[in-house]
């Protein structure tokens, strides 16, 4: 009888705990609705603490993630959603959890992690329409990891699915044309003529100053030697000239790298603008 009483009391305790968790969940929803987000996320955390029910915990974690996202605390949002568990036979909730996990990973610039969650979503969620809804994020994450080939295929599918009149080559033409400049070429040009590598990279001003400094130092060296100032010719002319010459070559390579990165960022931005515009119009 005592054992029975103990079991009974224990069941009552857990029932009471779940009831309280539910009450806190409602309170948190109210706070969330009133945009008291800092307070709301704390109450959602209390629900996670009190409840043993995984579905309720997932709901609280999902809303807590929304709070952090609205507060622009993306790291916290990511840490929160990664605590949620994918449960069997809960496709719609699982979709939301995995979608948020992918999105917050993207927002904290962990693009490989984002793609990992997208892969999990694709294998977990049965609803093909729901899976299609995350394509936009996959394209953006693939771009950021420089997987342009895959991104291009996915993007043309995305355009087709949304029945849009957008030429895919306008967005991804750069993949085939390869408009990027070669670091090796820039260094070779600077080796042939000081400053030419920077000019090739588009930094004309820097190229001219590199030419003037290198040639100036070398000319000073030559004139010094002709006039018998051998020490100056050696140390200032040759020493300083050589420093400018080798430094200029390295700088040309760096300039090309920076230019390429700026170009890539511009291409990505164009694609991002297009995709976000489509998503906003949905």
């Amino acid at each position: 009888m005592f054992l029975c009483g103990w079991f009974f009391a224990s069941a009552q305790d857990s029932l009471s705990q779940e009831l309280r968790a539910e009450q806190f969940l409602q309170e948190a929803h109210q706070l969330f609705k009133n945009q008291q987000l800092t307070q709301a996320q704390l109450v959602y955390e209390r629900v996670v603490f009190l409840s043993k029910n995984k579905t309720r915990q997932n709901e609280a974690l999902l809303y807590k993630t929304y709070c952090h996202k609205q507060l622009k605390q993306f790291k916290e949002a990511q840490a929160t959603i990664e605590r949620a568990e994918v449960l069997p036979k809960q496709d719609s909730v699982n979709y939301l959890l995995l979608y948020e996990a992918s999105l917050t990973a993207y927002l904290v610039q962990e693009y490989k992690q984002c793609l990992k969650f997208i892969d999990i979503l694709k294998t977990t969620i049965q609803d093909s329409n729901a899976v299609k809804r995350i394509t936009f994020l996959e394209i953006l994450a693939l771009n950021e990891t420089y997987q342009w080939g895959k991104a291009k295929v996915l993007c043309s599918q995305y355009i087709q699915d949304h029945q849009l009149e957008q030429d895919i080559n306008e967005l991804y033409g750069f993949v085939d044309k390869k408009p990027f400049k070669s670091i090796k070429k820039a260094k070779t040009l600077s080796w042939i003529f000081p400053g030419a590598g920077q000019m090739y990279a588009g930094a004309v001003g820097r190229g001219i100053s590199s030419s003037v400094l290198t040639l100036g130092a070398l000319t000073f060296g030559v004139f010094s030697a002709i006039n018998g100032y051998y020490v100056s010719a050696f140390f200032t002319g040759l020493g300083l000239g050589r420093t400018f010459y080798t430094g200029g070559r390295r700088h040309a390579g760096y300039q090309v790298q920076q230019r390429n990165l700026r170009k890539i960022a511009a291409y990505h931005q164009k694609i991002k603008d297009f995709i976000l515009q489509v998503e906003r119009q949905k």
Partner: peptide
């Protein structure tokens, strides 16, 4: 009753 009242 106690659990309900305490919860609420």
């Amino acid at each position: 009753a106690q659990s309900h009242s305490s919860a609420s």
